[in-house]
Design a protein around this nucleic acid. Structure first.
Length: 463
RNA sequence: GUCCCGUUCGUCUAGAGGCCUAGGACACCGGGUUUUCAUCCCGGCAACAGGGGUUCGACUCCCCUACGGGAUGCCA
């Protein structure tokens, strides 16, 4: 068997969609596990909607997440001659004809068919007219009128289509430009593609494309039609439901590996295992095991997976990853004298890098907002403890966790207080909330002077 | 309308006729660990769309219905 070649063929009419990332991912995995090649083709034949900016976004984000193509991507807009040549070949073989039906005629025809309860499709009225090419004619493929096409789908098995259900699709528009189906088929052949892995919205395009392949004498391809990524209302995931661009997820602080993991698990599973890195996927993934039904994208699973992937990072690597997110909110990790310990104790506080960076704020900048509920709960009976402890803290010579803990414990027992009564007010003073690493440690994330000053600040804020 | 694809816990899924008292994970709820929070650990809740067949036996096979999605473009 020849070398497996897969391809991802986006049209640059928007930023890279996570559904597209999943399609690209499955293509990539399938190619890699067969020692084949993964290719990218930009389907920019729609001049109205395609832009270079979107094309750049798609290519850049694709490679940024690790799904780089094995060859330089090609653009359909630059390959017109090749398609025209193919169209001429079909004309020469007698499998295509010129048709001059106007849009109005076609519209009328479709409405009538609908009214009759039939499938709206071109009825082939120009097929035997022997029309010559003109500025008003489109080139149509003469599809066989009987027989059937059997698509053997790696995920769904055999899918049968009666040729009678298929109409004569347009190969060349009246302005002479080739349509999607022609370009798609020609390029798959020209690029040596062996396996087409794409969304299930293309299932009904498949028999049409097979007819073009047949007319051109191309070899048959392998197909796998992936179930769609859905929103909570079971419609294709769109901006209405959630963020759809890959870059938005990256910006929120989801790790590439976690995004890929969650996308792979959407429609596929590998036993009881949940955490997969790309190498695991190349080893364990099997396209035949992909689910047939559409899958609803649930961000809470991504959150959890992100936390898992984050926890597998070494501290050094974690710090490198969080730096750009900290920078976005004007935090320079290097500004803290005990950054490593601080981050080590904060890294599980949230699920995304950006949220963790935000949780780091009180350790890098002044606290001006205090959690009202926390104040109500722990400071409504006055600030005596706060003041006492503040005074005591000032007397500490060695500002370290053990000394501080000792002092706090002593104060708590001497005054017969519960731990939270002692600790929470101080937490509020230091961070604005009742959440922080263990208090002795939290205090060491500030120097003595700063800690004392924050406690005083809260005291005056309350009076 | 017509054609095509689908339908297991709220969500992602396991399940290839007896292993199913339908398993796992997320979410949620409870408990433990943690001087708080998070992490972590333990436990709980929760599903085979409906109806007919086939079979000794059906989540698994067949048919019908319902529901959902996709396609029906001189878009891709």
């Amino acid at each position: 068997m020849s070398k497996v070649v897969t391809r991802f063929a986006p049209s640059p009419t928007g930023t890279l969609h996570i559904g597209g990332v999943r399609t690209a991912l499955f293509n990539y995995i399938y190619a890699k596990q067969n020692n084949g090649e993964f290719l990218v083709r930009i389907e920019d034949t729609d001049r109205e909607r395609s832009t270079k900016a979107y094309e750049k976004n798609i290519l850049d984000t694709l490679s940024s997440i690790g799904l780089s193509p094995d060859k330089k991507p090609i653009n359909q807009s630059e390959r017109n001659d090749i398609y025209i040549k193919a169209a001429e070949q079909i004309i020469a073989s007698g499998d295509a004809y010129w048709c001059d039906c106007s849009e109005e005629d076609l519209e009328k025809m479709r409405n009538q068919q609908m009214a009759d309860g039939k499938k709206p499709m071109y009825d082939g009225r120009s097929r035997r007219l022997g029309l010559e090419r003109s500025s008003k004619t489109v080139l149509r493929l003469a599809t066989p009128e009987d027989g059937e096409i059997v698509v053997n789908d790696m995920i769904r098995g055999e899918i049968r289509f009666n040729n009678a259900e298929l109409d004569d699709l347009i190969l060349l528009r009246s302005d002479g430009t080739p349509t999607y189906h022609l370009c798609n088929v020609v390029d798959d052949f020209e690029q040596g593609v062996t396996t087409v892995i794409r969304g299930e919205d293309h299932i009904s395009n498949t028999p049409r494309q097979i007819h073009i392949q047949n007319a051109l004498g191309y070899p048959a391809l392998e197909y796998a039609h992936l179930p769609l990524v859905l929103g909570p209302d079971k419609k294709r995931l769109s901006k209405r439901h959630a963020a759809t661009s890959l870059e938005e997820y990256k910006d929120m602080g989801y790790l590439d590996s976690a995004i890929l993991n969650s996308l792979a698990r959407l429609g596929w599973s590998g036993g009881d295992k949940e955490v997969f890195y790309i190498d695991d996927l190349i080893k364990d993934f099997d396209i035949k095991d992909v689910q047939k039904a559409g899958a609803i994208f649930d961000i809470t699973k991504l959150d959890w997976l992100n936390a898992q992937h984050l926890s597998h990072l070494s501290l050094e690597s974690f710090i490198e990853h969080i730096k750009p997110f900290a920078k976005k909110i004007n935090i320079d990790i290097n500004d803290h004298q005990n950054a490593h310990l601080l981050i080590a104790s904060m890294r599980t506080s949230e699920n995304t890098l950006f949220d963790i960076a935000k949780a780091l704020r009180p350790y890098f900048m002044d606290v001006s907002d205090y959690d009202e509920k926390a104040i109500e709960r722990f400071l409504s009976n006055g600030t005596k403890n706060l003041e006492d402890i503040c005074d005591l803290l000032e007397t500490i010579d060695e500002w370290n966790e053990e000394q501080i803990d000792l002092l706090l414990k002593e104060y708590q027992t001497n005054n017969n207080l519960k731990v939270p009564e002692v600790n929470q007010p101080i937490r509020i003073a230091l961070t604005g909330s009742t959440k922080s690493p263990s208090l002795g440690l939290t205090l060491t994330f500030f120097d003595k002077k700063e800690a004392v000053s924050r406690i005083r600040k809260l005291k005056s804020f309350l009076s």
